[in-house]
Amino acid sequence: MGLKSIVCGITGSENSQKAMQFALDLALTNSARLTFIYVVDVGFLKGITIQLTPQYAEEFLERLGNRILDEAMEVASSKGLTAKKVVRKGKVMEEVCKVIKEEKGDILVVGDEGRSFAENVLFGKHLSHTVKEMERLTGVPVKVVR
C-alpha cells in the first residue's frame, strides 16, 4: 500500500537535510502529501537565570525555524512538489505526534541529530528509545536518516 501523507521533522543539521531529501523522494515516488515540521522547544531554559522571558527565545526560534522550513519548501517546489510547513511550540515529541495525527501521516522522517553514549546516560534517552516511544504514540513507522 502506498504512502499518502509523509511528515518530515526538520532542523538545520546535515542529517536533517538528508532526511528532507529522503522525504521528498518518498513523497514523489508515492505521490504523497508532504508536511515539514519544526518544533520550538525552549525546555533548555528551564531553571535558568535570565533577564528575558522564554517567550523571547520562542519568538526567534520560531522565526529561524520558519526560515529553515522555507528553504525546504523551496527545494520541494524546485522538484515540482508543493509541501506544507508547520511550526509548533512545545515539547518536540508531543507536538510531532499531534501533527502526525492532524495530517493523518503514514510515516515520520527525521534526521539523526546524534548523541554519544555518555550523553544519553547523562542527559536523557537514546534515539532508539525515542523512536520506539514515538512509534508507539503515533502508531506510524519512524524513519531516521543518517
Partner: peptide, 13 residues
C-alpha cells in the same frame, strides 16, 4: 540548547 534545537548539537565532551 538553541544551537541543538536548530540542528547543531554539541556533545558534552
Amino acid at each position: 540548547g538553541i544551537a541543538e534545537s536548530l540542528g547543531y548539537p554539541v556533545s558534552f565532551v
